[in-house]
Amino acid sequence: MDQDVAEDLVFEVASGIGRVTFNRPQARNAFTFEMYERLAEICEQANSNQAIKVLVLRGAGDKAFASGTDINQFRAFTTPQDAVDYENRIDRVLTTLEQCRVPTIAAINGFCTGGGAGIAAACDLRIGTRSARIGFPIARTLGNCLSMSNVSRLAALVGPARVKDLIFTARLVEAAEAAAIGLLTEVVDDLAALDGRADEVARLLAGHAPLTLNATKQAVARLQKRLTREEGEDLIVMCYVSEDFREGLDAFLNKRAPQWRGR
């Protein structure tokens, strides 16, 4: 494993609990492509290692759970296939997380946006602090779009109307509302309480019947109809290959407001 990835995404196992820490606090724990792949590897490890009973995901520092994909990862995009490959990667990683054999808990403090919010939505439980802010602000930042799998997963969690509300308004949902609409399963006061509560829930689940938990995860997944990746590729290409996406990327990196043109 590459040393930089090991430092950016820390994985430790103790007493049956696997703890995954997104460790780029200087970048609000924004994900590189290598970090996505490492997260998938950890889920596969949990699938094969019966000693791992539960996974807890958290962000380092006190500012963010994860703020999505590091914008610099997009600078090399030049073809429609680059966009399709990127969203296919995200679909694959988040599906691996969602289908992980063991229960997964997202411990959310501060910003949880874009791909970070996608990771949280793919977890089984989401515990957040009162300072948690969750959303998909892509309509005011980059002008890209979610994949069909991500839209399906989010719609199953909060409903189609809420998906439109979240993405159309590009707002970040505060903790109380997030709990009310299903983005959070529980709210605690602060970061110290979050760490304690996440560990408490993890220990509880680690002591429960693993086949019951796994069967319940699979049953819920079978209830949710998903469209294929291919059914959404035209939408991905439309957004990522657009002039607007390039404008959004340049505006974000230069800290200015984007000028959308719809093409």
Rank of each mutant, 00 (worst) to 15 (best):
P137M: 03
I134M: 12
G61N: 08
C145M: 03
N109P: 07
R140G: 13
N49E: 03
G135S: 08
F65V: 07
R58C: 12
V54N: 06
A46Q: 00
V93K: 04
M148V: 13
I52P: 00
L57M: 12
R101C: 02
A122Y: 01
N47H: 04
L125I: 15
E87I: 08
R38A: 06
E41W: 03
A60I: 09
D62Y: 12
D91E: 11
T104S: 04
R101K: 07
C100A: 01
K63P: 12
A64F: 10
E98H: 12
V56R: 11
L39C: 05
S152D: 15
R92D: 03
Q99E: 13
R38L: 04
N109F: 09
A60P: 02
V151Y: 10
G61E: 00
I90F: 14
D62H: 14
A120K: 10
I105R: 02
A64G: 05
C145D: 02
N150R: 13
C112V: 04
S67M: 14
A40W: 01
R58T: 14
T113W: 09
G114K: 15
G118H: 06
E41V: 02
V56W: 08
G115A: 08
G135R: 08
Q45M: 09
E37R: 13
T78Y: 13
F111A: 15
F65Y: 01
R58Q: 11
N72A: 15
L146P: 03
Q73S: 11
E37A: 05
T104E: 01
T95H: 09
L97Q: 02
V102Y: 00
G116Q: 03
D62F: 05
T69I: 10
L39N: 06
N49P: 00
N144R: 11
A46Y: 00
N109R: 04
A121L: 12
D91H: 13
V56S: 05
I42M: 01
D124W: 04
L57A: 05
A40C: 01
C100H: 02
R126V: 01
L57C: 11
L97S: 11
S149L: 10
A83K: 02
E98Y: 07
R126G: 00
C43D: 08
G59S: 02
I138N: 15
N150G: 13
G68D: 05
D91Q: 05
Q73V: 14
L142R: 14
A117L: 03
G118T: 14
R58A: 15
S147W: 10
D82G: 09
T113P: 10
N144D: 13
C112Q: 02
A107H: 02
Q99H: 07
E41L: 02
Q81C: 10
T96W: 01
F136M: 10
M148W: 05
L125F: 15
A40H: 01
G68V: 03
I52W: 07
R58D: 13
I71C: 15
P103E: 03
F65Q: 04
V84F: 00
A66D: 14
V151I: 13
Q81G: 03
S131R: 12
L142A: 11
G115L: 03
L55T: 06
G116H: 09
A51L: 11
A51D: 15
G116R: 12
D62G: 07
E44I: 06
A60V: 11
N88Q: 13
